[in-house]
């Protein structure tokens, strides 16, 4: 295969992987700590993307839009957490999965109501190309990759250096013990949920200029994001990072080999991994509740 194609393929895969990672990390944390499958994260992703579009139209600045998207996603997720999840954390996973799907579905309806059905374009904020080994690579994609790594280290620092982060890590192991020490776990839940929402919004904002913004965009990435979370092992942060980039590369390089593979290969990879290791790469067997 020719190097130029390969390089741009790898970069493309890394940037897609970055978006998947930003989306999946929140889901994974939510699952790890609260034992919920929060399909509504895909709504915050769409909210982030749409706000980016709207703010870009108003101000002409895409970065400002991304920032606004994150804020809006955080606010919406906070509202949803308050009104819905706070009542249902105790329920089983199936229950939260269906409820959060309802929220996602309703959100898609609301988006159609506000922004209409037509897909909207958002221009790439950085047009420059970077030469890597004689191949022109869009700088914006590299920026997206860098941002996702910064987020990874930010989360790592948060979880390992702050007391709240340590409590969240402890809660991922055993919520009851954390509660038994006298820590208000619902506060931890809220913090985690909002972090997840903001990161989903960031993913939507960054992704908006790489694709068309349309009401169904959440449903379109849903399957991929969940695949990332599952391959990595629900609740594992390291696993999520690894699997996001695996999936990104499988999508990107797979399509270089044979176009239809782009969509199918990752799912086949996932089935294979699950058949070998039913809990994903880094998933733990120990699950309470």
């Amino acid at each position: 295969m020719d190097t130029q194609l390969l390089i741009s393929g790898v970069i493309f895969g890394l940037s897609i992987g970055s978006i998947f990672f930003l989306l999946a990390i929140g889901l994974s944390l939510c699952f790890g700590l609260m034992r919920i499958i929060s399909l509504d994260q895909l709504l915050y992703y769409s909210v982030g993307a749409y706000l980016t579009y709207t703010i870009h139209v108003a101000t002409g600045n895409t970065w400002l839009g991304v920032l606004g998207g994150m804020v809006a996603a955080g606010l919406v997720s906070f509202g949803v957490e308050r009104f819905v999840f706070l009542r249902i954390y105790e329920r089983d996973i199936t229950f939260t999965m269906i409820t959060s799907f309802g929220i996602l579905f309703a959100g898609i309806g609301a988006i159609k109501y506000i922004w209409g059905l037509i897909p909207r374009p958002v221009p790439v904020p950085i047009d420059a190309q970077l030469q890597i080994l004689g191949t022109g690579v869009p700088l914006y994609r590299l920026v997206v990759i860098v941002i996702s790594f910064l987020v990874y280290f930010g989360i790592w620092l948060f979880l390992n250096r702050t007391i709240t982060g340590k409590a969240i890590r402890a809660g991922i192991e055993d919520v009851e013990h954390v509660e038994g020490l006298g820590i208000n776990v619902y506060k931890l839940f809220t913090i985690t949920f909002i972090i997840a929402g903001i990161l989903s919004g960031l993913a939507g904002g960054l992704h908006s200029s790489l694709i068309m913004v349309d009401p169904q965009m959440g449903l379109e990435v849903l399957a991929f994001v969940f695949m990332v979370v599952i391959i990595g092992g629900l609740g594992s942060i390291k696993g999520t990072l690894a699997s996001a980039f695996i999936v990104g590369q499988v999508v990107s390089l797979g399509s270089l080999v044979y176009a239809p593979l782009a969509q199918m290969a990752p799912f086949a990879t996932m089935l294979l991994i699950l058949l070998i290791k039913p809990t994903g790469l880094y998933g733990s067997k120990l699950l309470k509740r």
Binding site: V84, I88, F95, T99, G102, I103, F105, I108, G109, K112
Partner: peptide, 21 residues
């Protein structure tokens, strides 16, 4: 009547779940 029936169905779904599924 309205283009966004998802909004209605989605809210109904959440409502049904919260009201005792």
């Amino acid at each position: 009547f309205i283009a966004n029936w998802e909004l209605f169905i989605g809210l109904l779904l959440v409502f049904i779940m919260l009201a005792g599924e």
